[in-house]
Simulated assay, not measured.
Amino acid sequence: MQTALLIEQLLNGVQFGVMLFLMAAGLTLIFGVMGLINLAHGSFFMVGAFACAAVAAATGSFWLGLAASLAAAAALGAIVEMTVIRRLYARDHLDQVLATFALILILSEGTRWLFGSFPLYLNIPPELGGAVELPGGVFYPVYRLAIIIAGLGVGVGLYFLIARTRLGMRIRAGESDREMIGALGVDIGTLYTVVFALGAALAGFAGAMVGALQSVQVGMGEPVLILAFVVIVIGGIGSIKGAFVGALLVGVTDTMGRVLLPPMLAAVIGPAQAAGIGAALASMSIYVVMALILAFRPQGLFSAQA
């Protein structure tokens, strides 16, 4: 296999991992601060993609659509937290799972009612079209490279938000002892709403960015949500650093497995069967990696306490 192709696919794995990081970062923030299992997180991914596609189609501007995806997902997240999620903090995790699963159905059917059952399509902005030559003579799509850069930028921004700002101090304190910061005068309700809206905005941003690479359709967030849960389990629940490392590990493992396994199997079972079996084994490899990591580090690679 050519080196250029391997480098291109490795970058595709990084791009996939960055997208998973945007999903997992919000999910792990919500669980770390609130202790909430939010199955509806994938719906914010879908809402962000639909908002971006609809606004871009109406205005002709991808960038206005991207801004709309952030605003729509954050606003919906805040509304959902204040009307539904706020009632679940003191409830059992099973109640949280059932309630947020109901939100998936409600948001999916609401999106279908607004936009119909047919998929929408989002064009890559002209300024990010084409390919750029990287060192080694590798040509890589500019838009995919922009996703990687944007994801890394979000990761750096989250680090400074959590580590260097007053809001980040309150978020970290909320992870450690929410009763104490409440006693010190911090409005816990407002903090939870902000954190939930921030997590939803990150998911909506990921959906908008990925929407230009695939069709925008109802239910597109659920497969990504499953992988996001794998990411936070691998990285350590509540850890942004863990979400980043886990997302890259999952993205590269899945992509490189789909590239390398079929040619390896073709020499044994023939090319006709190797494609399907190789793709299935690549999907399984993610969970094998998760099982191996949990066998040695049950708390994940980076625990929130670390």
Rank of each mutant, 00 (worst) to 15 (best):
Y159R: 14
Y159A: 11
M169S: 06
V142D: 00
I149R: 02
G116M: 12
L227W: 00
V245W: 10
G257D: 12
L20H: 05
V194I: 15
G130F: 07
G42I: 11
V84M: 04
L249Y: 08
A4P: 08
P223D: 02
L261Q: 07
D92P: 06
I181C: 00
G168L: 00
P298Q: 11
I124Q: 11
I30N: 06
G136F: 12
A24I: 09
M290Y: 13
R87L: 14
A280P: 01
F229H: 07
I106E: 04
M256E: 13
I234H: 04
A4C: 02
G278K: 07
G221W: 05
L260W: 02
G251N: 06
R91P: 05
I30S: 09
M46L: 03
V138F: 08
F44W: 04
L98V: 14
F62E: 03
Y287G: 07
S283I: 12
R87E: 10
L294H: 10
R170I: 05
S108G: 11
S215P: 01
A71V: 14
L191Y: 01
A40L: 01
L248H: 09
A51N: 03
A131H: 13
G235F: 09
S117N: 15
Q15C: 13
L261R: 03
V132F: 08
F45K: 00
Q299N: 09
F244Q: 02
V194M: 06
I106C: 10
G270S: 03
G300C: 06
V250W: 03
Q2F: 07
R112W: 02
G207E: 00
H41I: 13
L265A: 03
G242M: 07
R164K: 14
L103C: 08
L39F: 15
L70C: 07
S285F: 11
L145M: 13
G151Y: 04
R170S: 06
L161F: 12
G17F: 06
M19E: 11
V288N: 01
A275R: 15
M82K: 15
A163W: 05
T28E: 01
E109Q: 07
G257C: 08
I181R: 01
G300D: 03
E133V: 15
A99T: 15
V18F: 08
L167P: 00
E179P: 00
L11R: 04
A131Q: 15
A266C: 15
T100Q: 04
G151M: 11
P262I: 10
V47D: 02
P271L: 08
L158D: 09
M284N: 03
T253V: 14
D187M: 05
A56K: 10
A73S: 14
E8G: 12
G174S: 02
G199L: 10
A57N: 08
V47K: 03
G235K: 08
G130A: 09
A212F: 02
F205Q: 01
M264T: 13
A57P: 00
D92N: 14
V47E: 00
P141K: 09
